[in-house]
């Protein structure tokens, strides 16, 4: 447990010290909100949710890429792969929650007639999905630039796809869009249920995939045999 907490703590410390990057990441959701603010609050909320997803997944990508060289030696220092990826994920979820609070307050103050509980749940879905999603991309792509471009593509696709298109359900952040619709347009509870289910399934799938990738990358190689000291 101490190992998990230590990795989570160090992840948070590292990310909060990247102030310039954090500010730029926060700028995107804020800009999304402001651009659509005067026309249609529903689009504004959906764009804000997508912006939060972008911010958290990009932070996850940076954290994972930065730890690429450090993790093998931490493995030798006594960490198991799950200490490293779960600890990092915990830190990223914590950061995502902290990022979400001011944006949630923004919706409460700046927009009327919303189901605010739904907005909060949608933000939680964004954070839950974005952390493992960014980590997965960071683990698969060795360079930050490639990962950022891929994230940008996913977010742009999520934004531009027709909501009626069945393919949108295959995008990682569909859950927040569905719950956002429930919260903004006061639709039936089916939207909330579908969104929650999608968010849960995608989060679990991403965590399992991240676990698999880390287990392979930080595996004990077959040629190396450890024997105890007599």
């Amino acid at each position: 447990m101490n190992r998990l907490v230590t990795v989570a703590e160090m992840t948070l410390r590292e990310l909060t010290r990247r102030r310039g990057v954090l500010l730029l990441l926060l700028l995107m959701p804020l800009t999304f909100w402001l651009i659509r603010r005067d026309s249609y609050v529903g689009q504004s909320v959906r764009a804000l949710l997508l912006g939060i997803s972008w911010a958290v997944s990009t932070a996850a990508l940076f954290a994972t890429s930065a730890a690429r060289e450090l993790e093998p030696r931490l493995r030798l220092a006594g960490y198991r792969p799950h200490h490293l990826y779960i600890g990092r994920m915990l830190g990223l979820w914590g950061l995502g929650l902290v990022i979400s609070v001011p944006f949630f307050l923004l919706t409460v103050i700046d927009a009327n007639n919303l189901r605010y509980g739904g907005i909060a749940v949608a933000m939680l879905c964004c954070v839950a999905v974005a952390a493992p999603f960014g980590m997965l991309i960071g683990a698969l792509l060795p360079r930050e630039l490639e990962g950022t471009l891929l994230l940008l593509t996913v977010v742009a696709m999520q934004m531009l796809l027709d909501p009626a298109d069945a393919a949108t359900k295959l995008t990682p952040f569909w859950s927040s869009r569905e719950i956002g619709t429930w919260a903004v347009d006061h639709t039936d509870d089916g939207y909330l249920t579908r969104g929650l289910l999608h968010g849960l399934v995608v989060t679990v799938l991403l965590i399992v995939t991240v676990a698999g990738v880390f287990a392979v990358r930080l595996r004990q190689r077959r040629h190396l045999h450890h024997v105890p000291i007599a």
């Binding site: 030696r73 045999h225 450890h226 105890p228």
Partner: peptide, 12 residues
Amino acid sequence: EVTVAGRLSYCP
């Protein structure tokens, strides 16, 4: 093959 007795540490 490599056999290591005891704890291993690596400095890149």
